[in-house]
């Protein structure tokens, strides 16, 4: 496994001995903050790949993905080359999709990836189509969700109902469930600016963490809320969050080899002796097609 990738995992305390152990994640809330200049979506991609990785010790974790920002094909396309070099990856048979179903873009995608990889499909990381067929990924496409003033019930409440149903359906299987929402700022637009409804929605989702030991991972565009009268949503979200990951540009602007910096605040948990362990990490990153490089400021070789 390439060493730098563990920077993020380590900061998220995923990497205490066994990187495939999901135990530390159970019941956690993770908040990814980003801004116009630096998109934090790559953290989300990394985490999807983590949770759908075929070599998890408890190989039955399920991801419920609520997409407001991008269509399925976008995530699918990004996740494919995210290399999973440590394990067997996806068997090539599974990765071959039914060509009849694909439009030509997908076909081109597949061909191109096969070409780029050079080693065939076996090396490729995470195939969302296959995962969705295997019922490990439940994808809600919310790009067109609209909740006008009096339509909150049809929109957000119905969405929560669907999520809850999905969670309840799989909870009996004793699987680790992760709910990802990309992103809350767009959910707010869909709710026609009703912050109250969005917060209600998030609190409901939060109850699932205790009831079913779900993990919740969300993205919020932090720079939207920089003026004083819009603080409520980000503050409440930060309060709910156990881990806050903030992507921001360098003070000196963007560079070709440093795409920004990550600040990770892990509120941690009590260690049983009443001591509260929390840690904060800061490092730079560079996003690549198949991985993300992490390094300490100035530490890039």
């Amino acid at each position: 496994m390439d060493r730098p990738a563990s920077f993020l995992d380590e900061a998220l305390s995923l990497d205490d001995g066994d990187s495939n152990n999901l135990q530390p994640w159970i019941g956690r809330v993770v908040l990814v903050e980003d801004c116009v200049e630096t998109n934090g979506a790559f953290v989300l991609h990394h985490l999807i790949k983590r949770f759908l990785s075929p070599n998890l010790s408890s190989s039955d974790s399920i991801v419920i993905f609520v997409a407001f920002a991008q269509p399925f094909s976008h995530y699918d396309r990004i996740l494919l080359p995210l290399g999973d070099r440590q394990g067997e990856g996806v068997p090539s048979k599974e990765a071959k999709r039914d060509i009849g179903d694909m439009d030509w873009r997908d076909l081109v995608t597949g061909l191109e990836l096969a070409w780029v990889g050079g080693l065939g499909f076996a090396e490729l990381g995470c195939n969302l189509v296959v995962q969705r067929e295997n019922k490990r990924l439940i994808f809600f496409d919310m790009l067109m969700l609209e909740c006008p003033d009096d339509g909150v019930e049809d929109g957000i409440i119905a969405l929560y109902g669907n999520i809850q149903k999905a969670v309840e359906a799989v909870s009996s299987l004793n699987k680790n469930i992760t709910i990802m929402i990309d992103d809350i700022s767009l959910l707010e637009v869909a709710a026609n600016g009703s912050t109250k409804d969005v917060l209600d929605f998030m609190h409901y989702c939060h109850t699932l963490t205790t009831q079913f030991a779900c993990t919740i991972i969300t993205v919020i565009h932090e720079d939207i809320y920089s003026s004083a009268d819009h603080f409520t949503l980000p503050l409440q979200m930060e309060h709910l969050a156990d881990i806050k990951i903030k992507a921001e540009p360098l003070v000196t602007g963007l560079a070709a080899d440093v795409h920004g910096q990550l600040t990770i605040l892990n509120k941690g948990s009590s260690d049983g002796l009443g001591r509260w362990k929390s840690k904060i990490r800061n490092f730079h990153y560079r996003v690549k097609e198949n991985s993300v490089e992490y390094f300490y400021p100035g530490g890039r070789t």
């Binding site: 998109n39 979506a41 790559f42 991609h45 976008h74 396309r77 996003v287 097609e289």
Partner: peptide, 8 residues
């Protein structure tokens, strides 16, 4: 589109 790499 379809990539996570930012254009610098």
């Amino acid at each position: 589109f379809n990539t996570q790499v930012p254009v610098i």
